[in-house]
Amino acid sequence: MKSALIPFAALVRDTFSEAFARRIFWGFAGCSTMLLAFLVFIMRIDVVAGALATITIFGRAMPTTDVEGLVHQTQSVIAMAMYFFGMALSVFASAGLVAAVFEPGRIELLLSKPVSRTEILMGRYVGNLLVVAANVVYLTAGSWIIFGIKTGMWGVGYLLSSLFTIFIFAVLLAVIVLVGVLWESAAVAIMITFGIMIVTPILAQKDSLERLLSSEWSRDLLRTLYYVLPKTSDISVIIRHLILTEPVDSWMPVWSTALFGLVVLGAGILHFRRRSF
């Protein structure tokens, strides 16, 4: 390994070690494994000549004939559960991982090493992102293979959906990093990130909400908040479209959310570089 990469690789590896020492990530992996086991052993799908013969859950036959629709719906449910529930779990676990770096007695030692501050922060960011990505890919790829083997359907829409889940986590992690650098508090990071996760689906209903607002400035404020903040709800719709192999209306939610993430991460790095510990 090139010597310049050794410290960065060590920082990423350290984040993995710390994540594995925290049981919440094992809890995430455990939930994924249980779901995969459910798909393997409990849900039985018999396909005859490309059409569904029977689907059995806990030994009970379910009334359906559309194999493609069934697989897509099931994949949608898993993807949405992972997107919202898995994301909440990941935010909860990651907030502590980021804040831990700034603990007095730990940060001074890290900063005393011949590593730039940007590298220290990015090492933790990338490490944390990879831990969550590993969990997401494990569940998505695992269930995709199981569905593929059981039904012969190997559409990539479901696999692509995991990239969007990882993407939205990367954006929320940028918020956690910024809050961590500013206040060194896991609790505040969780509150603010959960706040964004709760508020943005409401903002996504801006067209309906605008009709309820009487003043122009409040409508402007609503629109500004919608365009500035990440569009978690709109991206979940894009994921659903991808899985159901439907066309995506607009990619604006993706690029504007990416822009938000970049600005927030940049602000976190800038503040970290200027801070005294």
């Binding site: 410290p7 070690s17 603990e103 730990r106 001074e108 030692l109 890290l110 590593v115």
Partner: peptide
């Protein structure tokens, strides 16, 4: 550097901790 009120990562072993900080100093494996 050895700080006064150090807080070394408790999830690492003695060996792992030296390996981590050695790598941060640019030492190869």
């Amino acid at each position: 550097y050895l700080p006064e009120n150090h807080r070394f990562p408790t999830y690492l072993t003695g060996w792992g901790m030296l390996d981590f900080y050695g790598a941060l100093s640019g030492m190869n494996a």
